[in-house]
Design a protein around this nucleic acid. Sequence first.
DNA 1: CGTCGACTTGAGTTAACTCAAATCATGTGG
DNA 2: CCACATGATTTGAGTTAACTCAAGTCGACG
Lengths: 231, 231
Amino acid sequence: MDPATDLLSFPLFHSIKKENQAELTDICSRRNYKRHEMIYAEGDECDGFHIIISGKIKIYKLSIEGKEQILQIFKEGEPFGEVAVFDGKRFPAYAESLTETHTYFFPADDFISLLLKNPAIALNMLSVMSIRLKRYKSLIEDLALKEVPNRLAAHLLYLSDMSGGTDMLTLDISKGQMANILGTMQSTLSRALGKMKAHGYVELHPQKRILLKNREALEKLASGQKLFDSP
Amino acid sequence: MDPATDLLSFPLFHSIKKENQAELTDICSRRNYKRHEMIYAEGDECDGFHIIISGKIKIYKLSIEGKEQILQIFKEGEPFGEVAVFDGKRFPAYAESLTETHTYFFPADDFISLLLKNPAIALNMLSVMSIRLKRYKSLIEDLALKEVPNRLAAHLLYLSDMSGGTDMLTLDISKGQMANILGTMQSTLSRALGKMKAHGYVELHPQKRILLKNREALEKLASGQKLFDSP
DNA sequence: CGTCGACTTGAGTTAACTCAAATCATGTGG
DNA sequence: CCACATGATTTGAGTTAACTCAAGTCGACG
């Protein structure tokens, strides 16, 4: 639990210079959140960003009627809230813990001056943000160009990738939350999953588990092809 | 037309160190594209990124049926293609010139080593990418949570912002391309604009010009409120 | 003035939405 | 260990925004 060694284990800081390691430890502080606690709201002034030590949080937007669109779910090791650090002032979305969560918090100004002394970390940060941009681009593509079953297939395959390519997924969120990631309703998601089951592409098991049975078909769906309702 | 002074005029390079200015000039080269030329395709290996000297390009995704979703349109002074430089290997979307376009091209490796010597430029780049992430977040929000008329209102107000807050917009793209930005069909866009006109929110003028007549109503629409079909 | 691409309008269809009811899981206290 | 309560999920029925396809109109430009 020594912060110094702890911090260096995050990929973001691997390449920090020896002489700045103490500074890194100094500027960061620990923050703790209970389940379902608001970490920041859209429009809040940005004071810094977090790296997750343990737990799980969601970044989301709210419509005027209160419907939510989840932009991303972050787990241990991942930074969040960094956008507001570099572009200026305010958080562009909400952040809320899904489980009990512990983070290291880095004040914006201190972190920027650390970056100026450690360009390698700035490069790491650029790479983190690049990956995020990429993900957002494909989310936009999905929302604009694909229908729900196709988005669902893409998401299932993504989840499988994230857990090392296994065919037996264990969802760590409710199906309602998953619908919010896919930009649809719980009932629509349920029907889409039902159809996939009927076609033998997946099996639904208790305790939020889903078995992928026909990867090939799912890949086709994910790439935008329509496989349902042909005959 | 001296590249050296030219390059320094881009905000990205304002803070470059004196001793690296020559290097900056050395590594970059000029590229020229005719109207409607493909600059790179999704999945292409990334060799570097561009800054636009003059002209206009679109970044877009294609669905399997060939429908396009425009992610962004870039004009003079803006960098593009930088995501692939920092995260690795391949371009996540297509880039195509909309008009005759001239750019400075920076090879990825050379640029990264320049960044390591000029952390301030890395910070500028982080800020550029932060702004992009923010824009994508709100595009996702719009696509997932709002209907076409609301997205249209938001986009009109955005265009007005971009041109200094004027009420008389001059579109620099066709309505068909605009529909692709909004994630909808040309015909749907046309109907939505028609409704806005009928309600007196906008006036449609020849030569791609649109006059915003009721900003307040447009703001309400943009924030997700439904104003149509009440009586 | 004619032609070509851009835009609008019309008619019919559909994916996904809303709202509501029914069912299923899970955890708790008796 | 069972019965019930609570929340999550599924199913049903009706509605709607937006889609497709097609035809018609406008407008810019040679």
